[in-house]
Simulated assay, not measured.
Amino acid sequence: MAHNILLIGGHGKVSQLLTPHLLARSWTVTSMIRSADQKPTIEKLGKGQPGKLDVLVSSVEDVKSEEDAQKILEQVKPDWVIWSAGAGGSGGAPRTMAVDHDAAIAFTKASIHTPSIKKFLTVSYISSRRNRPSWWSDKDRESAQKVNNEILPTYFKAKVAADEVLTVLAKERYDEEAKKGVAEKDRFHGISLRPGTLTTEKAGGVLMGKITCQGKVSRATVAEAVAAVLETDGSRGWIDFLDGDEDVGAGVKRLIKEGIDSVDGEDFGGMKERVAKL
């Protein structure tokens, strides 16, 4: 089935690796980029591909509200949305909050509140969580705390909030659709894809599921994982992964079959309270 995808943050390193994977599946991709001078780089990614590539020049920094995000969704009319944007550390804390918190949450809410959109996938990171899950070691906990509290405190604040909005609102819509008798494959699926430290290595296998938070994964593998997760029915929830030996597609199918969701260990009640205040 052909899909119409809005890829937010299309000029990012992962997105540039991802775009050919999406187009190779004959999907239509609208790559949303910050400035017109980035357009030639993106257009090259569509050459020789069976899918259709459109480029939308519109900065995520201009998206201040759900209404702003909704206008873009109405223009593109996607059925799937990928959030792969990020301030990348430039512009300091204010820009990080504007992009990774405000705009990310605005697009998340607008997408979930749009009935025609069936999937929303955000590229997060493996330590974006408030609690220590049962499968983490003491060293995992220490590593995550160092990243979240010392190295990337503003980024953590932004990303964990956006992850929680997606988790809570996606579950609410999924459950509502289930009550209405909507088939599982046709319900809304919210996905937080959570890689370890990104590298420039070639794509390879994965270690996926309830795993250590200490490790690396190549951007090329992240791109393959995004495509694999989207094309596999039943993918939803938090998916943690690092470089490993398992085939990406097989790993995704295994998680679904075994019902593994790395959100386990988080306080869903506390999440709902925080999300209600945003």
Rank of each mutant, 00 (worst) to 15 (best):
G259C: 05
E273P: 03
G46Q: 03
T28I: 10
S134P: 04
T19P: 07
L22R: 06
M1R: 06
T232D: 08
K71D: 09
R130W: 02
A158D: 11
V81F: 04
E273F: 05
S134F: 13
K210I: 04
A227F: 10
E266I: 00
S262I: 10
G88K: 08
S124N: 04
F241R: 03
F188A: 09
V229P: 13
P94L: 10
L242T: 00
V60Q: 08
K139I: 11
L17H: 14
A225T: 15
R187G: 09
A162Q: 02
M271D: 15
Q49G: 01
I191R: 07
I8T: 08
G190P: 06
W83S: 07
W83Y: 13
D261Q: 00
R130G: 01
A170L: 09
G237Y: 01
K44G: 03
L230H: 01
L152K: 02
L73Y: 12
A250L: 03
I112C: 00
V160H: 00
V182S: 01
T30L: 08
D267Y: 03
H21N: 14
S218C: 07
L121D: 13
G92N: 12
G237C: 06
V206P: 00
L45V: 05
V60D: 06
A36M: 03
F188R: 13
Q145L: 15
V99E: 04
L6R: 01
S262Y: 11
L230M: 15
P40V: 09
T197D: 02
T114L: 04
K47G: 06
N4T: 02
G244V: 05
E67M: 02
D261K: 01
E142D: 14
G88W: 11
G91L: 04
H113W: 04
T154D: 10
D245W: 11
E164K: 14
V168N: 08
V222E: 02
E61D: 13
D243M: 00
W83P: 03
W136Q: 09
T154V: 15
I112Q: 00
G265D: 06
E61Y: 04
K202C: 11
D54K: 09
A250K: 12
R194D: 01
L207I: 04
F268S: 12
L53N: 00
P195A: 02
L18P: 11
L17F: 11
Q70A: 15
T41F: 12
V217G: 00
S90A: 10
D163N: 15
D175V: 08
V222S: 01
G51K: 03
E164C: 13
S134C: 08
W80P: 02
I117A: 00
G251W: 12
E273A: 10
T154P: 05
T197F: 03
K109F: 01
I211M: 05
V248S: 01
S26Q: 11
R141D: 10
G86C: 07
P115C: 05
R173D: 06
A106N: 00
L255S: 07
A93F: 04
L242E: 00
D264A: 12
